[in-house]
Design a protein around this nucleic acid. Structure first.
Length: 1011
RNA sequence: GGGCCGGUAGCUCAGUUGGUUAGAGCGCACCCCUGAUAAGGGUGAGGUCGGAGGUUCAAAUCCUCCUCGGCCCA
């Protein structure tokens, strides 16, 4: 023991404090772009490909975002998750090349380009299709470039120099080739379905191109005479239907009832008001005359109607009646009574099955003479109308579906311009123009539908019009652009059948290169339907989270046939040659020529001018028409697997993908289109697993929207706090469900980030100058062994989390370990040893050896999450690696020394440690002691695990001393020892405060001697 | 309106087949340290598990209804 020096020496210089250039403050917004630039410079993505060549592959196939608009939080989340998958799989040792993609065709881009035309006062119809498409292409390319730069900023490991675009010629050619597989196997048919149609623009409209406006329409009640029924008393009565589109009556084909609705058979009397003040009796001659005088159908007075709607119906009749000035009538009214002479006049809808009516114009014969059956419709309600709905499969979705199910097909009587075709038998023969010539007016023409228009007039003449008034106010769809009314109209469309047995053995021609192994999966004996194959695949595919399986399954199970066609310009053409009867050419050599032409020239290749060239000598081009429809963009995206994973454009890709990862909305979208496309062409899904994420809400759990002003812009977050913060956020929340983002949440994420950063900073400082390894340590203290076992345990959990894409657990494990096991436990206990033991003391070296192992493990764990910070950490420790174009992102998963599970004694020890801390607290409160180092602690002997000496306990508890007793309480007193001037521990050998303890005396002497 | 999914401390998340007083980290409050210092350590306060019924000896967990929110449809 040395003598105390005359003046207290400041031993600070002799203490080995952590030393590092790694700043506590991150300054990520400034730092990240530089790191990004360096990765770009050293070609990190390519470098990683070279280093991983030959390893087991992991293919995450990118679902293409639409090339329109800036990056938003949803993109950011999606890309970060994908990047985490790619990087964690890479870290796990695999080769995970990632090709980003963009969806480039489609309506929203067409709109934008059209909008530009409108600004320039150009009519789209005058622009040649080629030119229009070129502008769409340029527009899409512009956004691809913009989004690519925005996404890169997130620090993504992806082949951004060589992305896939659905509009690249090779992609377009493959899409056509894929379509031709459907063609050649006959898995395509021409059908029809009602779409929103604008008669003014003569084009189909998407739902989003339609806006609703309040208008007033004609409403009419029409009587359909019942001619057949299992209920005898119905025969001869009239079913009443109500509609606001009189123009659809000419193509009526059926009546729909609600199976659960109550109907009544009723008699109407038209009471013209008794001139002599007497009330006329129902059914009397006087009322019939009054009705006839009013132009109302006196012979259609027994009606069938939903009981709940009688009141509304009566009101309409009265309104119509009051508008007719009947001579001599005072207050014309309509009365409704239970049908006379009918015992039970109430019927449940389901009893109406088998009932048949006839069209009011049945006398015209032909189409109109056919029976109009009563069909059950779930969509029939008693909200309005009469509870009986007139069905025209040409002009309504419900109508179409119900009629189709009952063998009634649309008749296509209304042409593109909204006018009935000339040969249609009836639509008001007296419709004459000003010069008295017959004319055909558009069905959206108001006078055409008016109560005195041609339709109503003829119905009235036929005695079928019970009421007609132009006073029904409702909202009705209009075209966005022309503001004109739109209609539902059946148009021919191309469909993929879901339930037709597939002949999957016939793919010998027209199959593009790279089809490869997939074709072998087929057995031509498999005649499953597309739906069956898809369902089988859904069953096989792994879903994360598992509920996705059910969601996709229920959608595929119930979906209708796939409509592939769109009446649009910007997209991949449906390259079909059609005969007048709707059948199409199935000639693989023709198809091969078309595919080759598209590869050469893109979608513009599908041009009338090349018709003969494509058809070749084997076919007479006069017999065929070229289809001008384009493909649904979902078909494009359903083919991304074909042109990205197969073929040689990206040789390091592989079909099928291990994983598809998108938002849960893609159960209806990309997951499904890819599944259907691939199931039909390859007999299996293009993926083995599907991972879905939820949507990002604001801090209150509400959906983000620009109008609410509650959006969070990921680019702003990156500008203000850095990409690593937003990455850590995305990987901390439960992304499998909807989750939130907001200032408070980001602040919390920032706190977590700082904890991780400081953990690294401490390790870097503590490891300053350390070049040894575990083999230098002659003996390893048990605490170090324990920490290594904790690390091994952590490692197993982290690996499992990474393998299961459980990133929230992954980051939480990492943060908790840094907080609890390292910062508050291991580092705190070993601070004394690091600072004050001799520089080369074996025990100190053992600690640093473990720190080194921890460092190498943690920097790797952190790398996929904090991509920038991990690199900064790595380059700080190994600047020479930086000079050699190295990167933390080239490393493999850490190898942890093979230590067993943590010794159970240590769990016991840590419980005791907590009790000691708790016991010290009161003395701190009353200022008896300030730090734990001033405490003499007595612990119950029974609570101490086997094999720990008192001195070691004091070391682990960071107290002056520990003794044990037979009591079962932990007791604490202030120590009487003095404080060592160097290590600040209070020890018995220190004679007075400021003197040195034995250990420090030795260390300082050696240092002084060496100096 | 329909289908599916979700609601556990201020925040982010755990809660296995229903089984002691519902856990963790962060944040917060208070305290210590001032040799990891815009850092580090300690203690503590926070929850009628969205609400109401029901099943059970026992419910955050199972059932029903309601409510709020989300996705996809209509």
């Amino acid at each position: 023991m040395s003598e105390p020096e005359a003046t207290a020496r400041d031993y600070k210089d002799t203490v080995f404090l952590p030393k590092t250039a790694f700043p506590m403050k991150a300054g990520l917004p400034q730092k990240e772009p530089g790191i990004l630039a360096r990765w770009q410079e050293i070609g990190l993505y390519q470098k990683l490909r070279e280093e991983r060549a030959g390893r087991e592959k992991f293919i995450l196939h990118d679902g293409p975002p639409y090339a329109n608009g800036d990056m938003h939080i949803g993109h950011a989340l999606n890309r970060i998750l994908k990047d985490m998958v790619v990087r964690s799989q890479t870290l796990l040792g695999k080769d995970a090349p990632f090709v980003p993609g963009w969806d480039c065709h489609g309506l929203p881009i067409e709109w934008k380009v059209e909008e530009q035309y409108r600004k320039k006062k150009r009519d789209k119809k005058e622009v040649p299709a080629k030119e229009f498409r070129a502008e769409c292409r340029a527009y899409a390319q512009g956004w691809v470039d913009t989004q690519r730069e925005q996404l890169k900023r997130l620090g993504l490991m992806a082949d951004f120099d060589n992305p896939y675009l659905t509009m690249q010629f090779e992609s377009e050619a493959t899409i056509v080739a894929e379509l031709m597989k459907f063609v050649e196997s006959g898995n395509l048919y021409r059908g029809s379905k009602p779409v929103m149609w604008s008669p003014v623009e003569e084009t189909a409209l998407a739902e989003a191109e339609v806006e609703y406006e309040d208008i007033t329409s004609t409403q009419i009640d029409v009587a359909f005479e019942i001619v057949e029924s299992p209920i005898p008393e119905l025969v001869g009565a009239h079913a009443v239907i109500w509609t606001t589109t009189p123009w659809t009556i000419p193509v009526n084909q059926a009546l729909a009832y609600g199976p659960d609705i109550d109907y009544r058979l009723l008699d109407i009397t038209y009471d013209a008001g008794a001139p002599d003040g007497q009330s006329p009796q129902a059914g009397t001659v006087a009322t019939v005359e009054a009705a006839e005088a009013a132009g109302l159908p006196a012979d259609a007075t027994r009606i069938l109607i939903a009981y709940d709607l009688v009141g509304q119906f009566k009101a309409r009749l009265n309104a119509a009646l009051s508008k007719l000035n009947i001579e001599g009538a005072v207050e014309p009214t309509v009365n409704v009574f239970d049908a006379l002479g009918v015992k039970n006049s109430r019927y449940k809808g389901s009893e109406l099955a088998g009932t048949v009516a006839r069209h009011p114009m049945h006398h015209l014969g032909g189409f109109y003479a056919k029976p109009r059956p009563f069909l059950p419709g779930d969509f029939v309600t008693t909200d309005s109308g009469t509870g009986l709905v007139h069905m025209s499969p040409d002009h309504g979705e419900d109508d179409f579906d119900l009629c189709k199910a009952n063998g009634l097909d649309p008749v296509f009587a209304v042409m593109d311009n909204g006018v009935y075709r000339d040969d249609w038998a009836w639509l008001g023969a007296d419709d004459l123009d000003n010069e008295g010539k017959p004319r055909r007016r558009s069905v959206i023409n108001k006078p055409f539908n008016a109560p005195d228009g041609p339709i109503c007039s003829d119905l009235r003449a036929a005695g079928a019009l019970l009421s007609a008034s132009e006073d029904y106010a409702h909202s009705y769809p209009h075209s966005w652009r022309s503001k004109a009314k739109v209609i539902y109209r059946c148009t021919p469309q191309w469909f993929v059948p879901m339930d037709k047995p597939l002949d999957t053995g016939d793919f010998d021609v027209g199959v593009p290169e790279g089809f490869g192994a997939a074709v072998a999966l087929f057995t031509s004996k498999d005649h499953s339907t597309l739906r069956e194959i898809a369902m089988r695949e859904i069953d096989r595919v792994q879903f994360y989270p598992p509920k996705g399986k059910r969601r996709l399954g229920s959608m595929v199970e119930g979906r209708p046939d796939w409509v592939l066609s769109r009446q649009r310009a910007w997209g991949v053409p449906i390259t079909l040659f059609v005969r007048p009867d709707g059948s199409y050419l199935q000639d693989s050599s023709v198809n091969a020529r078309v595919v080759a032409a598209v590869r050469e020239q893109g979608v513009d290749a599908w041009d009338e001018s090349r018709k003969a060239e494509f058809l070749g000598e084997a076919h007479n081009s006069d017999e065929f028409e070229m289809v001008t429809d384009i493909l649904d963009v979902w078909f494009d995206s359903g083919c991304t697997h074909a042109f990205t994973l197969e073929g040689d454009r990206w040789p390091d890709q592989r079909w099928p993908a291990d994983l598809y990862l998108e938002g849960s909305d893609q159960h209806r979208g990309w997951f499904q289109s890819s599944l259907l496309e691939s199931s039909a062409t390859r007999g299996r899904a293009p993926y083995d697993a599907v991972l879905t994420h939820g949507f990002t809400m604001d801090s209150k759990g509400k959906k983000m929207s620009k109008s609410l002003g509650n959006t969070i812009d990921p680019r702003k977050v990156m500008e203000q706090t850095g990409a690593d913060i937003i990455r850590l956020w995305a990987l901390s929340v439960d992304f499998t469900e909807d989750h939130r983002i907001g200032d408070e949440i980001l602040k919390g994420v920032g706190d977590q980030y700082r904890k991780l950063r400081n953990t690294f900073r401490y390790m870097l400082g503590a490891l300053d100058g350390y070049v040894g390894d575990m083999s230098d340590a002659t003996e390893i203290p048990e605490l170090e062994v324990y920490v290594l076992s904790l690390l091994a345990e952590l490692d197993a959990k982290m690996r499992k989390a990474a393998e299961e894409y459980d990133f929230n657990t992954y980051t939480r494990l990492l943060v908790d370990f840094c907080n609890e096991d390292l910062s508050a436990f291991f580092f705190d206990i070993r601070k004394d040893r690091l600072y004050c033991d001799g520089a080369e003391d074996p025990a100190r070296n053992a600690y640093r050896a473990v720190l080194d192992i921890l460092f190498h493990a943690l920097v790797r764990y952190a790398a996929p999450v904090l991509v920038f910070t991990a690199e900064e950490v790595w380059q700080t420790r190994y600047p020479e690696d930086g000079e050699q174009d190295g990167s933390v992102h080239l490393l493999d998963w850490p190898s942890i020394p093979p230590v067993g599970a943590p010794d159970a004694r240590w769990a016991q020890l840590r419980t005791l440690r907590e009790q000691v801390m708790e016991a010290i607290e009161p003395l701190r409160r009353d200022k008896t002691i300030r730090s734990g180092l001033e405490a003499d602690v007595t612990v119950p002997a029974a609570a101490v695990p086997e094999g720990f000496t008192d001195d070691r306990l004091a070391e682990l508890f960071i107290t002056a001393s520990v003794t044990r007793s037979n009591s079962d309480a932990v007791t604490v007193t202030r120590t009487t020892d003095h404080k060592c001037g160097r290590c600040w521990r209070l020890l018995p050998e220190v004679e007075e405060d400021g003197a040195l303890c034995d250990r420090c005396d030795k260390v300082v002497s050696e240092m002084d001697a060496a100096a």
